[in-house]
Design a protein around this nucleic acid. Structure first.
Lengths: 188, 188
DNA sequence: CCAGGACGTTACGGTTGCGTTCCGCCCTTT
DNA sequence: AAAGGGCGGAACGCAACCGTAACGTCCTGG
């Protein structure tokens, strides 16, 4: 049986290495070195770099985000924005995510994995968030969950992952009111 | 004197290679191969990969985007969204941009170059757009240009560069009305 | 107590890329 | 006609990885 502690060490090393040099430059040797492990131990578990990264990343990404249910749209929205902004400020995640997104533009397998891992959750969260708000009468009936998700995640991602500015709480508040106003108008 | 046609061939090859394999895996040899050029010709112009890429990319990115001035906020907004969505659907650009953004998280020099090239324009466009709209009374006086830019670019970037969905004109319209509503509420 | 398995280590041949050097060609300048 | 500079091409030594193989060690189960 494969030793669990070794597997964990490899997984950690892959995440670390992925953050440091990116998928493109990630080498099995470097992973083995960092994990304090022989290359053999890695090849015993996965047969290539792609397979290894996909398995590890999709496992991490698959850990489900709790669906929002605070009782009000404002509360749900705030919760989601907190979770997302926290995640995007995480040192490792904030480097791995854009890297894999860029790589996904070239590698269909990575694209699929990311779609499955992220998009599914994203959609579920969006539908629940909007559905609840509509049921409560906080949003008009025609509200499009996809647009809502884009409006919420887009600016956050842009600011935190692309512009890379500081986590300004006043900004988050402005963004929240803006997004709320945007969605309330969707039925017009 | 260095031959201009050779320089052009190299620049094209770099952009192409950058789109195909990304900065991480970009090799001088591959660039030379694709450009139909000796490595010598490249090293005669730049001293390493980073310098070469920075010079070429910042040159391309520096080409100024026209400031919007259609006479109405709705018109300006639509123009910007058209320009951005067109740019993000460009085959080469849509692969290079996310890739360099990811790389920027690791390489301060790339980050600086990108900031300078993109952010400056972005800010200018945002300030002009919002300023004009406020002057016309189309937006409340307190409107934050930074938030406005994030609200416009964020969702577009998310959808086109991250989610990679099709260019849906109905979506663009929905997004436009949503963004307009969001910004009009900013003074509340 | 012993067999088997997972491990780290070392080594292997092969590939790729680096940055440099030298060559001979060709075009321009003088 | 001669000189010089930019060029492509080939080769260099060096380093990093690849994926595989052959050790010897340690731990576990029977």
């Amino acid at each position: 049986m494969l030793r669990t502690d070794i597997t964990v060490a490899i997984r950690d090393a892959v995440m670390y290495e992925l953050a440091e040099v990116g998928y493109g430059r990630l080498s099995i040797e470097a992973v083995a070195r960092r994990a304090g492990v022989g290359k053999t131990a890695i090849y015993r578990r996965w047969s290539n770099k792609l397979e290894m990264v996909l398995e590890i990343v999709s496992d991490v990404a698959g850990r489900s985000v709790p669906l929002p249910d605070t009782g009000s749209f404002a509360g749900d929205l705030q919760l989601i924005m907190m979770i997302v902004s926290r995640a995007l400020q995480h040192r490792i995640a904030s480097q791995i995510i854009p890297d894999l997104m860029a790589e996904a533009a070239r590698n269909p397998q990575i694209a699929d994995t990311l779609q499955t891992a992220l998009r599914t959750h994203q959609q579920a969260v969006g539908e629940k968030l909007v559905g609840q708000a509509v049921a409560r009468g906080e949003l008009p009936a025609g509200t499009d969950p996809d647009v809502a998700v884009d409006l919420i995640l887009g600016p956050l991602y842009w600011r935190l992952a692309v512009s890379r500015s500081k986590p300004d709480p006043a900004y988050l508040e402005k963004l929240m009111t803006a997004v709320t106003a945007a969605l309330k108008s969707a039925g017009d």
